[in-house]
Structure formats: structure tokens, C-alpha cells
Design a protein around this nucleic acid. Structure first.
Length: 755
DNA sequence: GGATTGTGTATTTTT
DNA sequence: TACACAATCC
């Protein structure tokens, strides 16, 4: 655990030197050049599927094994915990021992590590808490309220977004340039930002952005410290460099400022997080930032077949702002990329499900199959269809474990126990379950706390000794404070797991969910059990909290044979044999909203997203679009995505279901005037009551709308999607139906026919 | 202090 | 349509 590697040419070192050749074997010339490049700035432009992670980890191992740096002298940063974990595993596999001591982790984790050691230099105490998105928003809300602004006009969410943006760019309140001020809150944005930061300091807390921003303040404000870190980190390695924001870039540049021994790996064509503050400019500008930088391109793709690669390359080649790479493969050409046009989102889901079943019958694995969509709402149609045909699937994304309300509530309890002055956590659970401490009591507490400049809990403690509050509230408060004191006394005595159980029990939190009869209550109780189990892995409760704030992950699912459904963003870094890219329609993909907000730049990012999606596929790629889609229960018809036009024709084949080639639908879709008429190439048009009926896919059936009164309660009906059912209640044209297979649902009468 | 009704909104989300 | 939140009533 010393973190020291035995290096040298004798003893254990000789064994390592003997293996040196082995870890370089199997690398192609470019990969090998990247791994063994001498000290100095190095940019590795690694196209999709070209062995990026392998190069990065092998280079790290190479640096250690050749003695250029010892583990604690290496800083390696990633964006996700997953990537960090993978890197640790692979490096350990390469060097054959633990890499303890290495500074390897996410930007944020490395930021915290530095900040904990020097918290007082930026006005924090070492035990500071890290706020998540939820806390941030509530804090912002308080700031807006304190400034007497209209909360509806200037929502907290927007303020958080603005502050986040400034932090991503490395601006402290006094550094925000005038042009960036904007008109939020009548130009008071900076004032609010300042108030927000002051409040964070009094709470002894940081938000995610601060983890890096304070890091910058730390390094720029303390030259000795900077010099110390510059000497310490003899090698810096960065993964996914195209996703770095300005703050991260500045942080890296400071740390690498001495020796400039920095390796950045990335792919400008896969930059899809600009809306999160990522600056493609960082990677495009690397050679100017680090003069004399070596640039190595990895262009040999080991993942996809020829047609897939060529189709993806053809699309991305339309982007103007990029380094430019020419991916190639020695693999087989494989199948053509298939393009299918469907009538509506339901037919699209049906089509995909059919294709997956056929693939499975031919021996394909579901785990090797993914359906990738642009926006979350698109998953629904697929889920419904997959359930109907019994196709096992999982939706990746969704609410993550540590973001679920019950988990956050439980953690808020733990936080108050560990950090009594954590006001945000206390506010979250002070009246949960209900214990008679309502809004008016809370208001009084807040006022008192602010006046005395103490924390909420301290104010509550003081107030519970006076008779300022109504007896009811006062008693509840006395009781709560005593309970928290008791738990806190048990911190050192009980194991974290026992304590966690005690807290959830004695607070009445578990009981609250047990008493609740909503359908998701059992699931929530299950999650709480999972949480307690997770606590077990840690020596102390505070230790657990530190982990939670930085690692937001879903519980690992059993590795069953499942189809994966997820967003294109979520798919970055993954690969599958068989990939479906659904919903390629103007307006949806590329997203009209993105284009409205970001113009050409945004369109290029959408195109990169298309590229990312396409390059996820190893053997088979199917792109689909629907002529009609129901959005908020309104039918709208759309035009195929321009990205479909951009697919090189020689690498694709149109499936017959494409409406543009179908005589019955083609007349309106293929109609040039129709396309010309639409101002933004995306237009919507209501198609009232037009609907396809299961099993009669080729017939466009139109039925009358609003048959109110035509049905009677108790009547047996048939619905094309949910099957047979009985009408329980009628409300205008909405029927409340108990379906035999799908349970109780409210549906519009026009979709229902008498059985 | 708590339940109920009404209103506005609706991408992507590594930490 | 659905859901979350806020104003409103009891």
C-alpha cells in the first residue's frame, strides 16, 4: 500500500522490464507511438473504436514501468467514475499490482482531494459538504426569495444554470465579464451569484462547480502551492479531452504549467456536451495552447464493419469545425446500413421489436442489442411494445439511485447527524415525516438563524428553550433535537449500518413509507434497504457521505439477457453488435430546440451525436424515422432527418417499409412542395384521428373523433394497444377502462371500439 | 398546518 | 397527456 513501485533493471525491475515488450505488443504503430511518446505535451486524436482507452492506460503503465514517474506523481483524470474504475483495473492488469497512491479519478474527485487538504485557503473548513443539483436549486430559490424577486419570472432552475455556466467558464462573481451578465433578474445575476457563494461559505458547502473553481482560486492565489503541485505531478493524463470545460482546462494548464508533460486523449467528433459547458475549442486549440505539442491520430477502427464506418464518416464529414480524421478498417464490409421509414412511433417500435426478435432467432444476443434515442420520451413506445411481446429490456438513464427522493431524504438525515450545521439537509427532513413543524415554524427558525448568524439547528435549539413558538411546534422541535443528539452520540459506538437503520427507524421515515399505499411505496422501501446495505461498505457514516456526493450511480443490475434502451448521450463509450437509431426526424433529431438556441454550432453537435450513435454499432446498424409521432397526445407529422440525406447512398439500403418509397404514403412524404413549404424543414400538422390498427399495418384507418355518449359504463371494448377491457367510468370523451391484460387506464374514446 | 385544486410546462444530464 | 409546484381553502 506504500504506492511505491519497485523499478530498475535488477531484482523485480528486471521482471518488469522483461514484460515491457509484452504490453506494447499488439499495438499498431500509431498506438505504440502514442504510448511511448517522450515527455512533453501530447494530443492523441482517437476516433471511435480506435483503442483510445487502451492507449491511455498503456501509456500510464509505460510511464510507471519505465520509472518516469512514481504512482503518486501521476495525475490521471476522467469524467465518469466508470471510466476511472476501468482505468484503474486496466493499469493494474498491465503492471501486475495495485496502483494505490495514484491520483486517478474524475475531475471532481481530484478537485475535492486537493480542496480538502487546503480548504481554509478558500474560506472553507475541511469537512465541507458537497451539494447536489437538488440542494443547489433550493439554495438558489432562497437567494431569489431573499432578493424579493418574482420566482415565477426568474425560476431557481435558471439561476442555477447561469451560475453553473459561469463556473464552468472559471468565473468567480467578481470575474464575470459585463457581456456575460445577461438580463436574468433584470441584470442582477452577478449579485445573486455573489449571494449564492456567500451562502455556500456560511453553510461550509460547495456545489459541483466549486470543486474546480475553488481549485483554481487555490492554485492561482497560492504560487507556492501551485509550484508544489507542478513539481509533484510529473505526468498528467486526461481522458475525453473534448469534453473539458474552461475551468477544467485552466486547472490542467496550471498544473501542467511547469513541465508541460500532459497527455490528452479525445475525439473532437464525439464532443456532445457543449450544453453542459464542454468546449470543443479546448481540443481544437491544443497545439496553440501547448506549442511544440505532438499530435497523434488513431484512425484505424477495430469496432465496426466497413459500411457502418463509411456511413458514419460520411455524415461527420459535413461538419466544418473539426480536426478531421479518416477512419479505416481492415475488417469486412459487412451489411449495409439499413434505413427504415415507418408510419408512426408505434409502428417504429413494432418494427424494432420484430427485428430484434428475428435477430435473436438467428442466435443474436439481446445484451448485444441497443435502441438509441435522442430524447427520453421516445423510450416509452419501445417499452410498451417490448412489454407486449415479452422482450426483456432495460432503460438506462432514468432517475438514478442516489437521486431518488427516498434516498435523498435518508441521506439528509445522515447529513444532519454528521454535520449538524447542514441547513439544507435539515430543511429537507425537518417535517418529514410530518411532525408538526410546518412552513411558519420554519420561517421563524430561518429568521432567527439569520439574525444570530448561526445554523438552523442551532437556532432551533435556542428557540426550543423559549416560548416564542406555539407549544405544538416547540415540543416537536425539542423532541427532534434530542433525537438527533442521541444519534450523534451513537456515531462512534454503532456501526454505520446499525446507525443508519436506527435513524431510519426512529425518525419514523420507514414507517411513513410503510403506511403509504401508493404503488411505488414497496419499491422505495426496497431502495432504502439497498441504501443501508451500501452504508455497510464503509467504516464511518461521514465516509459514506463523501462517497455518495461524488458517485451517483444506479444499482448494478443482474447481467441478464436484456435489450438496452437509452439516449444517444448515454451510449457514448459503449458498443453493441446490433444498434437501432430511432426517431431520425427533423425537429426531433436534429433537435429543433437545440438549433433554435445554438444555430450552426448546435447543428454540428447534433451531427456529432449522430456520429456517436452510428459508431456504437459493430455489425448491424438500423436507422429509423416515423412519419407521424404523438407528442403530448397530439399527432404531428414530420420530415425525415437531414442526416438521412447525408448518409452516403452506397453504404445504405432503404427497407421497403420506408414511407417515401411506399405508394400509399409516398404521395405526401415524398412531395417536394410539401418539403419546400415548411419553413424550417420541420413542420407539424395535426392528423386528427388517423391511426394504425394492430395487425393491419398497411391500412391507414380514419375513425370519427369524439364519440362521447356512444359508450356505456360496464361495456366491453377493444383497444388496439391495450386489448380487451371493460369501461369503469366515463368522463367526457375519456374512458376509464379496466383492461384485461394491461390494468386500469384512461383512454380517449376514439381509440376504442365495442368488442 | 395540511389537503385540495389549479396552473404551467414539457431535450440531451459524465459530477 | 402527465407531472410538479403553487396558490387556495379548510
Amino acid at each position: 500500500m506504500s504506492g511505491q513501485l519497485a523499478l530498475g533493471m535488477s531484482g523485480p525491475g528486471a521482471r518488469i522490464a522483461g514484460e515491457a515488450a509484452s504490453y506494447l505488443q499488439g499495438l499498431n504503430p500509431e498506438q505504440r507511438a502514442a504510448v511511448t511518446a517522450e515527455d512533453g505535451p501530447l494530443l492523441v486524436l482517437a476516433g471511435a473504436g480506435t483503442g483510445k482507452t487502451r492507449v491511455l492506460t498503456t501509456r500510464l503503465a509505460h510511464i510507471l514501468l519505465t520509472g518516469r514517474a512514481r504512482p503518486h506523481e501521476v495525475l490521471a483524470v476522467t469524467f465518469t467514475n466508470k471510466a476511472a474504475r476501468e482505468m484503474v483495473e486496466r493499469v493494474e492488469g498491465l503492471i501486475g499490482r495495485s496502483v494505490a497512491g495514484l491520483w486517478l479519478g474524475t475531475f471532481h474527485a481530484m478537485g475535492v482531494r486537493m480542496l480538502r487538504a487546503h480548504a481554509e485557503l478558500v474560506g472553507l473548513k475541511p469537512g465541507f459538504t458537497i451539494l447536489d443539483a437538488d440542494d443547489q436549486e433550493r439554495l438558489a430559490k432562497q437567494i431569489i426569495q431573499a432578493a424579493a424577486l418574482d420566482e415565477r419570472r426568474w425560476p431557481a432552475r435558471a439561476l442555477v444554470a447561469i451560475i453553473q455556466r459561469w463556473k464552468d467558464r472559471g468565473y468567480r462573481p467578481d470575474q464575470v465579464p459585463a457581456v456575460e451578465v445577461g438580463d436574468f433578474a433584470l441584470g442582477k445575476g452577478i449579485e445573486l451569484y455573489r449571494a449564492y457563494q456567500e451562502r455556500l461559505l456560511t453553510l461550509n458547502a460547495c456545489d459541483f462547480g466549486d470543486l474546480l473553481l475553488h481549485g483554481l482560486t487555490l492554485l492561482t492565489g497560492n504560487p507556492d502551492l501551485l509550484a508544489q503541485y507542478q513539481r509533484r505531478f510529473k505526468a498528467i493524463l486526461v481522458d475525453e479531452y473534448q469534453d473539458t470545460n474552461v475551468a477544467q482546462y485552466l486547472w490542467l494548464r496550471l498544473l501542467a504549467g511547469g513541465h508541460k508533460n500532459i497527455t490528452c486523449v479525445g475525439d473532437d467528433d464525439q464532443s456532445i456536451y457543449s450544453w453542459r459547458g464542454a468546449e470543443v475549442g479546448n481540443i481544437l486549440r491544443f497545439e496553440q495552447d501547448f506549442p511544440g505539442a505532438a499530435v497523434i491520430r488513431l484512425e484505424r477502427n477495430y469496432r465496426s464493419t466497413g459500411h457502418i464506418l463509411a456511413a458514419a464518416s460520411g455524415v461527420i464529414a459535413r461538419n466544418r469545425h473539426r480536426h478531421g480524421k479518416t477512419l479505416w478498417t481492415e475488417g469486412e464490409a459487412g451489411e449495409l446500413v439499413r434505413v427504415a421509414g415507418l408510419w408512426d412511433d408505434e409502428e417504429e417500435a413494432r418494427f424494432v421489436a420484430d427485428e430484434i426478435e428475428a435477430w435473436q432467432r438467428r442466435g443474436g444476443k439481446l445484451t448485444e442489442t441497443a435502441v438509441l434515442v435522442r430524447a427520453g420520451f421516445q423510450t416509452r413506445a419501445f417499452e410498451e411494445r417490448f412489454i407486449q411481446v415479452g422482450l426483456p429490456y432495460r432503460v438506462v438513464g432514468g432517475p438514478r439511485f442516489y437521486e431518488r427522493a427516498e434516498i435523498r431524504d435518508a441521506i439528509a438525515y445522515f447529513r444532519v447527524v454528521c454535520q449538524p450545521d447542514d441547513d439544507l439537509a435539515l430543511e429537507r427532513i425537518i417535517n418529514l415525516p410530518r411532525r408538526g413543524i410546518g412552513e411558519s415554524t420554519l420561517k421563524a427558525l430561518r429568521t432567527a438563524a439569520r439574525a444570530a448568524e448561526v445554523s438552523l439547528l442551532q437556532a432551533a435549539r435556542a428557540m426550543s428553550q423559549t416560548d416564542e413558538l406555539p407549544t405544538r411546534a416547540r415540543n416537536a422541535l425539542v423532541e427532534l433535537i434530542a433525537t438527533f443528539d442521541r444519534w450523534r452520540a451513537e456515531l462512534g459506538e454503532k456501526s454505520p449500518r446499525e446507525l443508519a437503520e436506527t435513524i431510519l427507524d426512529e425518525s419514523g421515515y420507514t414507517a411513513m413509507w410503510k403506511a403509504e399505499h401508493s404503488p411505488d411505496a414497496p419499491g422505495r422501501l426496497e431502495n432504502l434497504k439497498e441504501l443501508v446495505k451500501a452504508v455497510q461498505e464503509f467504516d464511518t457514516l461521514p465516509g459514506f457521505l463523501e462517497h455518495v456526493s461524488l458517485v451517483v450511480e444506479n444499482a448494478t443490475e443482474p447481467d441478464a439477457d436484456l435489450v438496452t434502451i437509452m439516449t444517444l448521450h448515454g451510449a457514448k463509450g459503449l458498443e453493441f453488435d446490433n444498434v437501432f437509431l430511432a426517431g431520425w426526424e427533423e425537429g426531433l433529431f436534429p433537435s429543433q430546440r437545440a438549433i433554435d438556441e445554438g444555430g450552426t454550432k448546435a447543428l454540428e453537435e447534433e451531427r456529432r451525436l449522430a456520429y456517436v450513435g452510428m459508431t456504437r454499432a459493430r455489425r448491424r446498424l438500423t436507422i429509423s424515422f416515423a412519419a407521424n409521432r404523438r407528442i403530448y397526445n397530439q399527432w404531428s407529422s414530420s420530415v425525415p432527418s437531414r442526416f438521412i440525406d447525408e448518409l452516403p447512398p452506397e453504404h445504405i439500403e432503404h427497407l421497403h417499409r420506408n414511407p417515401a418509397t411506399r405508394p400509399d404514403l409516398g404521395s405526401f412524404l415524398d412531395d417536394e412542395p410539401f418539403r419546400a413549404r415548411s419553413t424550417s424543414r420541420f413542420r407539424t400538422q395535426r392528423v386528427e384521428g388517423a391511426k394504425l390498427i394492430e395487425g393491419r399495418a398497411e391500412i391507414l384507418q380514419t375513425r370519427p373523433v369524439g364519440r362521447s355518449g356512444a359508450f356505456k359504463t360496464g361495456e366491453r371494448i377493444f383497444h388496439p394497444k391495450f386489448g380487451y377491457g371493460r369501461i369503469e367510468a366515463i368522463d367526457g370523451n375519456k374512458l376509464d377502462i379496466a383492461f384485461e391484460k394491461s390494468g386500469r387506464k384512461k383512454v380517449i374514446d376514439s381509440f376504442v371500439e365495442p368488442a
